[in-house]
Design a protein around this nucleic acid. Structure first.
Lengths: 156, 156
DNA sequence: CAAAATTAAATTGTGTGCAATTGAATTTTT
DNA sequence: AAAAATTCAATTGCACACAATTTAATTTTG
């Protein structure tokens, strides 16, 4: 007996998981915008500050590892945060290739003004914590499980 | 009796749902890149083509509604697709404000080369269809349920 | 109907993302 | 130790995103 459900057309935008992900990500960033605007931060800048509030004195490379961003993105972003007086950038004497990022007093101060943001976001998202944690873990699993593309000519 | 679990610090990057979402979205777009590169498309361009393959002859506005993008993003993107010979843009006679988008023969042709992409992605994501649908619906619910920010001075 | 308000795209300007290249410093090899 | 390879950040170039403004066309109002 044949199924009566419509044929699942994977080319339909509204069927696609990846579009839902893309749209959700941009939507959520949009919610951050009015919350971060008073702090003078964009969402990627806020992410950088989150990392530095955990521990500063780290290198651009370490920052990039945490955020999955490269120097092409981070260098200009960090220059803006430096311009805003939130951090300092300096080559490490131990290894002149590395650039170490240190928060200024103003950068550390800013944390207090950001502490209510997670709660604000939780409210806007209208999800309870367990649901959110589940979704977060699903997304992390997704990223972790991504099958590397089969690049040919790779040495074994 | 006090709980022995560590205090949940919502300021920790790796605790945050929103960062997982942001990172997952960029990761997934990164998987598309090598698949779309032979077609000469970026991921946002691919999304535009998906909408047009469903139905063309729509306006920039309708396209923007489907993709949640405004003309500031779409206009230059559509110009590039036009330059690539995939579509035509023309003012509507019925309303000269509107710009109608029509696929060219080459634009319709391209669909065949894109038809295997969803299956490729499914393989790369290493998730079965039910899980993916669940996650997709969760993300859609999230976007739908987003509480509008309380903008003051709004007329009632 | 004419003025005012609204609408649709385009434009302008800023800030990501990311591939590819460059340049300098360090490490590994020979 | 000198040459080769590697590493880190910066730079370059291109393509989004999105706020804000502009321009032109249409609709609504007085």
């Amino acid at each position: 007996m044949k199924s009566r459900t419509a044929p699942p057309n994977h080319m339909l935008l509204d069927e696609q998981f990846c579009f839902a992900l893309y749209a959700a990500s941009r939507s959520v960033t949009g919610i951050y915008r009015p919350l971060l605007e008073p702090l003078g931060l964009t969402y990627p800048q806020y992410l950088v500050m989150l990392v530095l509030w955990e521990r500063d004195g780290i290198t651009v490379r370490e920052l990039g590892r945490r955020l999955m961003l490269d120097s092409g993105t981070l260098t200009p972003l960090l220059k803006r945060l430096q311009q805003a007086g939130l951090l300092q950038r300096q080559r490490r004497h131990s290894d002149e290739r590395e650039v170490q990022i240190d928060l200024t007093a103003a950068g550390r101060e800013l944390r207090r003004h950001a502490e209510n943001i997670p709660a604000c976001m939780l409210e806007r998202l209208c999800l309870d914590l367990p649901e959110l944690k589940q979704l977060r873990d699903d997304l992390r699993q997704l990223v972790a499980r991504i099958h590397p593309s089969p690049v040919e000519g790779e040495a074994t």
